[in-house]
């Protein structure tokens, strides 16, 4: 471990004289820094997107998985009796932690986004709703459904699974797509750095020739290029991530009354993840350039 730290420090500090052997080439400098910055910017968004969809899936799963609803659609005369029957059934159902009748005011609030604040429930045949929260051990939904059918024929039992599961599946797929996008972005970065390094190596054929003439080992020559491209990649990625984070902070905060949507920006310790992008970029640039340098040097007589 100590050796690795020492090697890393030597690599980062570098040899000023050795570094100067490779002439600065403005075109490849700008190309590499810009490509790394652009890719890091996109990677920051892909990462944030993936984390946000992950949070969304978790939220939908945790918020709704332990809840269910019973809807009583019956005539006004029967509604009250069926409600009491349902409540009696729920009281004797193992695994039910709590249940409550959703009051008229609350129903009005729930319908307000669609029908407006001035809605009067007297004008609409709104069913009675009962919310159930189950214990972590859960209850036997099928058994409850049978009992409800017998005691309150107008009661419709809804575990939310029908519409919740596709949403959770979609959110999880989006999360995977975010990671795939991140992987493609980093792979593209490796390709761009490799091409830039190959271009620089080809442009510096004479430098390589002279360095070999005076007794430079190929690993020494390669290191001069590798260090330069790694540091360029790191610089570009830092700039890209900073720009990406600023853009994330500038995005409007999502949320809403239902709380099912979350903002794209990471929260809490998740902010540390984008900080890894420059390090990953530097590692990619290091290995991409080293591979390109070794291949080029092997091909030269």
């Amino acid at each position: 471990m100590r050796g690795l730290i020492e090697s890393t420090l030597i690599f980062l500090i570098g040899d000023a004289q050795a570094e100067r052997m490779v002439p600065p080439t403005g075109y490849t400098v700008r190309l590499t820094v810009f490509a790394a910055a652009a890719m890091a910017f996109l990677a920051t968004f892909a990462l944030a997107f993936s984390m946000a969809t992950g949070r969304l899936a978790d939220k939908w799963t945790s918020d709704l998985s332990r809840s269910a609803t019973i809807r009583i659609a019956a005539s006004a005369e029967q509604a009250l009796a069926q409600r009491d029957a349902v409540l009696a059934v729920l009281q004797t159902t193992p695994g039910v932690q709590s249940f409550r009748v959703i009051e008229a005011e609350e129903q009005q609030d729930l319908l307000a986004p669609w029908f407006g604040e001035a809605l009067s429930l007297d004008l609409l045949p709104v069913p009675t709703l009962i919310e159930i929260v189950e214990r972590p051990s859960g209850f036997d939904a099928q058994n409850l459904q049978f009992r409800l059918a017998a005691e309150a024929p107008g009661a419709v039992f809804d575990t939310h699974r029908r519409w919740r599961q596709p949403l959770v599946n979609a959110a999880n797929r989006l999360k995977v797509m975010g990671w795939v996008a991140l992987g493609l972005i980093l792979a593209t970065l490796a390709v761009v750095v490799t091409l830039a390094a190959q271009s620089a190596l080809a442009a510096n054929n004479q430098v390589i020739k002279v360095m070999r003439l005076i007794g430079a080992r190929d690993s020494y020559i390669a290191l001069a290029f590798v260090r330069r491209f790694t540091l360029r990649g790191l610089l570009g990625a830092v700039l890209g991530v900073v720009a990406g984070v600023i853009a994330l902070l500038a995005m409007p905060a999502a949320g809403g009354p239902a709380g099912y949507l979350t903002g794209l920006a990471p929260s809490g310790a998740s902010w540390l993840w984008p900080a890894l992008i420059p390090l990953i970029t530097a590692v990619i640039a290091f290995f991409a350039t080293r591979r390109a340098a070794r291949r080029t040097l092997r091909s030269l007589p």
Binding site: Q17, A18, M21, P23, I214, G215, R217
Partner: peptide
């Protein structure tokens, strides 16, 4: 060599010192 083979972006002194650097 007849064509000397220098690194043209380095000074004469730096070119002469190259073998010690490597």
């Amino acid at each position: 060599h007849q064509d000397c083979q220098f690194l043209d972006h380095l000074s004469v002194a730096e070119n002469i010192a190259l073998p010690t650097v490597v």
